[in-house]
């Protein structure tokens, strides 16, 4: 079993880092904007489908990934418009877009169940070619881990900078206290549009990298995405705590995603049926979410304040 776990490690780390991009997107909406956005369940697949279709059509994979990011951002904007302009509740707005994306993703794939690209056309294949490595086995995971580390470092640096600017600060205020934000002249509709675009762009980016790693993409690759994202965010929060600097908390999200994959790999190794994994995911989230409440109840005399304690 132990050997099995070691063998599963490179693949698990690759998965953890690729899904960490999504988790950072979920962090933006769930923790910073305080908006439970289910769009990611569709936009991650949109990113995957767009990237793989373009790659298969011999478009440069970097360009394909960039286009995928904007496709996801567009999906986020649609959810934001449903919520802010048409006043549809946040959760329902996300569900509507997510559901619509399922059809759109099929159209992107040209009605095929899935689309594959020749490995040499993908970013992994091109990197393998560049460094004289193989695009399969351990090499494939090493390349993916390297690519993801660079991407994640860039994303964390960007988020750290962006949420320190006047714009970013307005978005944080909108998530923390919308009445206050409006009273301070912040256009909260616009704040939500920007945050949701960013979050779903990241989800699509994550999907694009996953499809490059798999050399294929399909409409079902994103099912359960929101649960994975949330699990990473809450586990990360448990690991690094709430008080750390903003970038520490972002790194915590990445660690959360890795730990989640580790728990997952362990569950498979001890012989749990893969069909039960979603049940396990939900249980992990429930446990992670209720630990602070239990701590509060049994280990401290502090009363929980009336205010939301996000971000």
């Amino acid at each position: 079993m132990f050997q099995g776990l070691i063998n599963a490690l490179p693949g698990g780390i690759s998965q953890g880092l690729m899904w960490a991009i999504l988790a950072l997107g979920v962090y933006v909406t769930y923790k910073i904007l305080d908006f439970a956005d289910l769009t990611v369940d569709g936009s991650l697949a949109t990113g995957g489908c767009v990237a793989i279709v373009l790659t298969a059509a011999k478009v440069h994979p970097i360009l394909a990934i960039i286009v995928a990011f904007f496709a996801g951002a567009l999906a986020g904007i649609i959810t934001a418009l449903l919520n802010t302009k048409l006043k549809i509740p946040a959760i329902l707005s996300g569900i509507l877009t997510m559901s619509a994306l399922f059809s759109i993703n099929k159209i992107i794939l040209g009605k095929r169940a899935n689309v594959s690209a020749s490995p040499k056309l993908t970013i992994i294949g091109r990197l393998a070619n560049l460094f004289g490595m193989s695009s399969s086995g351990l090499d494939r995971n090493i390349l993916t881990i390297g690519l993801c580390v660079i991407l994640l470092a860039g994303i964390i640096a960007f988020l750290y900078w962006f949420f320190g600017t006047e714009w970013g600060s307005s978005i944080r205020a909108t998530g923390n206290n919308q009445t206050m934000a409006t009273a301070q002249g912040i256009n909260t509709d616009r704040a939500k549009i920007i945050a949701l675009a960013m979050s779903n762009g990241l989800a699509a980016l994550s999907g694009a990298v996953i499809s490059q790693y798999q050399f294929s993409g399909d409409v079902n690759m994103a099912s359960g995405t929101i649960v994975i994202g949330l699990a990473s965010v809450v586990i990360g929060q448990l690991v690094v705590g709430e008080r750390g600097s903003f970038w520490v908390r972002l790194v915590g999200v990445v660690l959360g995603s890795l730990i989640y994959r580790l728990i997952f790999a362990l569950a498979v190794q001890i012989g749990l049926d893969p069909d039960n994994l979603k049940l396990i995911s939900s249980i992990i989230i429930v446990i992670a979410l209720c630990i602070p409440t239990i701590k509060q109840k049994f280990f401290s005399n502090h009363k929980v304040g009336g205010e939301k304690n996000n971000a």
Binding site: E166, S169, S170, R172, A173, N176, N177, M180, A181, A183, Q184, I186, G305, E307, K308, N309, N310, A311
Partner: peptide
């Protein structure tokens, strides 16, 4: 009137 999760300085700057 204030954003509780943000610092005094951030609130004033907003």
């Amino acid at each position: 009137g204030t954003a509780g999760n943000m610092s005094i300085e951030e609130n004033l700057a907003l």
